[in-house]
Write a protein that binds this DNA or RNA. Structure first.
Lengths: 377, 377
DNA sequence: TTCTTTAATTCGAATGACGAATAAATAGGC
DNA sequence: GCCTATTTATTCGTCATTCGAATTAAAGAA
């Protein structure tokens, strides 16, 4: 952004912005645009000089841990993506110490192989109840550990600050960073995939509950009886919508033996979706029910949070065409029209590496705060 | 509060507080404590001099409109209650203009009779979807009008600024003003009475949705089928918990004719509660179901908002002893223990005049803001 | 070349907050 | 009754921020 724009954005006079920018340029935190001008030619007057963060201030690594997959990403201080990688690696059944050793090893190997310059911080996102402030994973289906001090554990092993975050929150943050509209007002972001998570943003800032961030919204029980959920209950949102639930129920319908795959991969889901699209009645019914539950879930969100935007994202959107009719119908019938009219609903087909982008941005922010604190001291 | 305390509270130095206080004392906005000292005697050192808002800066009238009742309250600028009154007056079936005439008439008569000194503003709370910012009641079961520009209408008639607010929000605000604990963190306040409303506070500030404030949480549908709700649907929270629902179902159980009382008064509810307490099995079942629904509602709130505090308030708490067993059981069985442990749940037996206090405080706040703006100009 | 337009900088002034020193008002001890 | 300790409040000089106004810079238009 150019100095004038920053001023308008922050409600400050150009004089003040100029002042501050000058000192940050001196310190090397900011750099000015080199490329003379690309779009001007129509605009009269002195051209804007855009300011960027320098790309020499270090870098940040973002990590996402899924059930049997780790995604890694390296971003420099200018916000540019330098490298990314994913690998298959089941993390369950590891003892707490082992788990942190494996993660730390994977991260530092990635840093070494990509020649990561001056890694300043690491951000990690995973499913479950993540206490970002204290750096503790209270519970996660992925890591299979309780009250795990993951941030301090990794921080010790890597010698760098580590920020941990709920994955739906990280995803919501990343999606909102890409679209200014979603950064204004309240945005509820439902992530459907291995589970069902909720990331909630108020004016672009992540909503934090009493302790955790994004909620495991999937465990809200919408039906008094219903399919079995991982949490032990029945009729949870997740028990209809999550990949594992759809996969399991598809198997059961075919009268095949009980499923052996606890966490279906993308390739295991594809045939189910395609058979349903081809017209398989029993599978269609599964997706119909799932869509209905998704509609009920959105309805609850609307009537509780009254958001400006609802975003449906995550791998589960692959079958949105199958979910949509019953989703719309349920949403319509359950929601007071006055409220429904206020919320725009959009589907964002977001891959999991958007998520690592999200944690990186969160971690960058933390660094900024530290920088501010350092300057104050 | 004394100057030192204000400083600690605001994180400012005593010097700055002293400065600002001096100018406000000059302007007559603040006054110092007259009564020499009441509690000291044990504390050494120069005694604190407490500062109060002057009571000569005008007053504010708070109004609550229920189904067949209007509550009024006059508060001076020092926050002291000067007068309050309530009157029976059904407001339904009035045309928009008439309605505002009646309300304006009632309010100015109250002001005149109580000799209200220099009324600066009026705050009004009612059930329904209230757009505080634009001063429009989008829908209210009480006023029976749609998209009513109530604030501007009353403001014109009274010649004063008028603030309107959802009643559950006003109640939540008032309750939190009385208890500092509820002003820290996130507080979800369920008001059970004529309907079921939700006021949500984040760090003591009312949460605002896309347009309205407190949500008509009662219309979240928890059961796919169930008793009839005023909104036309079935199985809404309200259809189990609200006074009208309990009253209606109690009548139906007794095989009496369809209820003629749409909005039961307190005296109509008392015998129902007492018969249930006495052991009437069918009535007990009604309260049992209502408690269960209340538990489910609290569970949804916990898993969506992750609040630090849940407050159950409103006239419906009169039967809390009957609701509690099934409430606790439902809450327990539906909620992830990690989340439930974070929220304290309390029942506040709050009368409706607490509510008028709430709107008054809201309106006072608006005035303060205006004062700040005036001083800036 | 000169004028217009927009961006950025410089400089002086105003504001607000703070630290340090000081004054004020009390209780306790002798 | 006097002195000391203790806590509260004020005064004053200093410092950092921010802004308005004027100025300089860099382009296109005439």
């Amino acid at each position: 952004m150019a100095r004038v724009e920053i001023g308008q954005h922050l409600g400050m006079s150009p004089a003040s912005v100029s002042d501050l920018a000058a000192s940050l340029l001196d310190e090397g935190v900011l750099v000015t645009e080199e490329t003379a001008d690309q779009s001007s030619g129509l605009i009269r007057g002195r051209p804007k000089v855009r300011l960027f963060f320098a790309d020499t201030l270090g870098s940040v690594i973002g990590v996402w841990t899924g059930f049997n997959r780790i995604e890694l990403r390296l971003v420099d201080s200018a916000g540019r993506n330098r490298a990314s990688r994913h690998m298959e690696r089941p993390l369950r059944n590891l003892e707490a110490g082992e788990l942190m050793d494996v993660l730390a090893g994977t991260i530092s190997a990635f840093a070494q192989e990509t020649g990561a310059p001056n890694v300043k911080a690491v951000g990690l996102a995973c499913q479950g109840y993540v206490d970002t402030r204290d750096g503790i994973v209270a519970w996660s289906p992925v890591l299979g550990a309780r009250d795990l001090p993951l941030a301090s554990g990794l921080s010790q092993r890597l010698g760098k600050p580590v920020l941990i975050e709920n994955d739906a929150s990280a995803m919501a943050f990343a999606i909102a960073q890409r679209d200014p509209v979603l950064r204004s007002g309240r945005t509820a972001c439902l992530m459907v995939g291995d589970g069902v998570g909720l990331g909630f943003l108020i004016e672009g800032e992540l909503y934090r509950g009493a302790r955790f961030g994004g909620s495991e919204f999937g465990h809200v029980r919408l039906r008094r009886s219903g399919p079995q959920c991982r949490c032990g209950g029945r009729g949870c949102i997740e028990a209809y919508l999550a990949d594992y639930a759809l996969h399991r129920d598809a198997q059961l319908i075919d009268h095949r033996p009980a499923p052996t795959v606890l966490i279906p991969s993308e390739s295991a889901m594809t045939p189910i979706v395609e058979q349903a699209r081809a017209g398989d009645a029993t599978l269609m019914k599964l997706f119909h029910e799932a869509g209905e539950v998704l509609g009920d879930a959105a309805s609850i969100l609307i009537q509780t949070l009254e958001p400006d935007h609802i975003v449906i994202c995550g791998p589960g959107t692959r079958a949105m065409d199958l979910l949509r009719p019953s989703f719309e119908a349920a949403l319509e019938s359950q929601t007071i029209p006055e409220l429904k009219a206020l919320a725009t609903i959009r589907v964002v087909e977001s891959s999991m590496d958007l998520l690592t982008e999200g944690v990186v941005m969160q971690a960058l922010r933390e660094l900024d705060f530290d920088l501010a604190r350092l300057k104050a001291a």
